[in-house]
């Protein structure tokens, strides 16, 4: 009696799992995905679309360059080429973050290419397009013009940024 009951129970669970997996496969295929590079800056989570990020670089020595706006940190050498580095925190008018581990995302928008200094790379993930929501009206005015959307990841709110607008802001400074 007991063995019969057990077999029927395991069968039932197995069939349930299979069903679930089938359903998942369908959503995976159907849902259009967006690759994002998530990073932390001044304690908050932000993200750039994966297509804008060419490479994630560890923070290297930045040579300052005179006569430029304060949001431009300076120049770095990436495989023999000279790239500029901008301070995203300053552009987004975030409080300065001193002494944190920092990375540079080598980002590109159109023809413009520059390094963007961030605090920490969190993850590179695929996010369903449907999960990306419009930016809420409650956002700070300093940030709002650069925000492309918002989504949830692991219970945290992540702000998706528009790189093109950011570069435009730098050029306009």
């Amino acid at each position: 009696m007991a063995s019969e009951q057990d077999i029927s129970k395991s069968d039932r669970i197995l069939s349930e799992i299979k069903l679930l997996r089938e359903r998942q496969k369908i959503t995976d295929v159907d849902e259009p995905q967006l690759q994002v590079v998530m990073f932390s800056l001044a304690g908050d989570m932000y993200a750039f679309p994966g297509r804008n990020v060419l490479e994630i670089l560890p923070r290297e020595e930045v040579s300052p360059i005179p006569g430029t706006p304060s949001c431009i940190i300076g120049l770095i050498i990436v495989r023999g080429d000279i790239e500029s580095v901008v301070d995203l925190g300053k552009i987004l008018d975030l409080p300065a973050t001193e002494g944190r581990e920092s990375f540079v995302l080598l980002a590109a928008s159109g023809t413009v290419r520059s390094g963007v200094q961030i605090d920490q790379v969190e993850d590179v993930v695929e996010v369903p397009q449907s999960a990306i929501l419009a930016a809420p009206a409650t956002l700070d005015s300093g940030i709002r013009e650069f925000v492309a959307g918002q989504f949830e990841h692991d219970g945290k709110s992540v702000t998706l940024l528009d790189l093109e607008k950011i570069f435009a802001q730098v050029a306009a400074a």
Binding site: S63, I65, G67, I72, L75, I77, I82, R113, F167
Partner: peptide, 29 residues
């Protein structure tokens, strides 16, 4: 000689800085 990055060039040129040299891990303006 390396041309300066697009974001920097318009500012740098005003100060006469027109190129950079990547020398190992240091940059000469």
């Amino acid at each position: 000689l390396r041309p300066l990055p697009a974001l920097i060039e318009p500012f740098a040129v005003q100060r006469g800085i027109w190129a950079g040299i990547a020398e190992s891990n240091r940059i000469i303006l």
